[in-house]
């Protein structure tokens, strides 16, 4: 992997230095390709979100990046050592290079500020030279792009449905055309039809703009469908990394197999599971200990 690597994470360790230190991310090594959708799977508390925060340098004490490096290979041809960024450089890095759709994004909008103002904030912070009219035009364009429509510019968050608010959050993450978008459970609270629309949107936008996505969720069937590769995390470690198809067909790690077996199959044999459990010996209850 040479030119087309976007992000290299090496020997990454994050520890919450509390009374009893918690080793939340353990020796993570990861290379993300340009334009790739990487699924990050695992159950609550496995370190998925902590890792994402690390890449964004959003960790606060007691969380500390103990060792390791995260390098962003900018498309401009230079490398950014994320851990070494100072305050001013961080401002240029965050959102411009890497943006994030936060968990529970539906409730992340400020309820007393209009959508236009909230989108405009991004531009006035990161593109101070932009005129007011340009900011409005850019914001309107973004709303059109993600299918909310520019006529919602003046709306307040409570006037939009959950799905629309989610789209607005995605629009925000797209605003500066970042090279990497981290999406932390972006569709978990939505119903299947809205979820499907938004996923379609994401993959279309990806082919249009060529950004990479780290998609965090515990919904493995969903990841299998949208990801190029999937990383499975368990207690802070990436225990398995492979293409979606390989993970589906031949999971190496017992834990991956167990995860797959905790999803009933939609159209397969009744009583069957996603990983249609060829080993009959394993009973349902054992599969989900």
């Amino acid at each position: 992997m040479t030119d087309d690597t976007l992000l290299s994470i090496r020997d990454y360790n994050i520890v919450y230095e509390t009374e009893r230190p918690v080793h939340a991310v353990r020796d993570v090594n990861l290379k993300l390709q340009r334009g790739e959708i990487l699924g990050l799977a695992g159950e609550s508390g496995c370190g998925k979100t902590t890792l994402a925060y690390g890449i964004n340098r959003l960790l606060r004490p007691p969380a500390v990046i103990r060792t390791g490096s995260a390098i962003l290979h900018d498309k401009g041809g230079y490398d950014i050592d994320i851990n070494a960024l100072k305050v001013k450089e961080l401002r240029e890095y965050r959102w411009d290079k890497v943006s994030m759709v936060f968990q529970g994004a539906m409730n992340a909008l400020n309820p007393v500020i209009s959508i236009e103002k909230q989108l405009g904030d991004i531009f006035s912070t990161h593109r101070p030279q932009m005129s007011k009219a340009d900011r409005r035009e850019e914001s309107a364009g973004l709303l059109d792009l993600i299918g909310v429509g520019r006529d919602r510019l003046r709306s307040f968050p409570h006037e939009l449905s959950g799905g629309m608010r989610q789209r607005v959050m995605i629009a925000m993450a797209l605003a500066l055309k970042p090279q990497l978008m981290i999406m932390d459970e972006p569709t978990t609270a939505l119903d299947v039809l809205v979820q499907r629309d938004i996923l379609q949107e994401i993959s279309e936008l990806r082919s249009q703009f060529g950004f990479s996505v780290i998609f965090i969720t515990h919904d493995l069937p969903l990841l299998l469908e949208i990801s190029d590769r999937i990383a499975v995390m368990l207690q802070g470690e990436i225990v398995e990394l492979g293409t979606a198809e390989r993970i589906f067909r031949r999971p190496d790690h017992v834990y991956t197999e167990r995860l797959l077996q905790s999803f009933p199959s939609l159209t397969g044999e009744r009583g069957g599971f996603i990983r249609s459990g060829n080993d009959e010996t394993r009973t349902k209850d054992e599969a989900i200990v």
Binding site: Q195, R196, D219, E225, S265, L266, T267, I274
Partner: peptide, 14 residues
Amino acid sequence: KRLRDASPNPESQF
């Protein structure tokens, strides 16, 4: 049908 097609279904995909 729409509901069913919108549900992730890796088995049919692969």
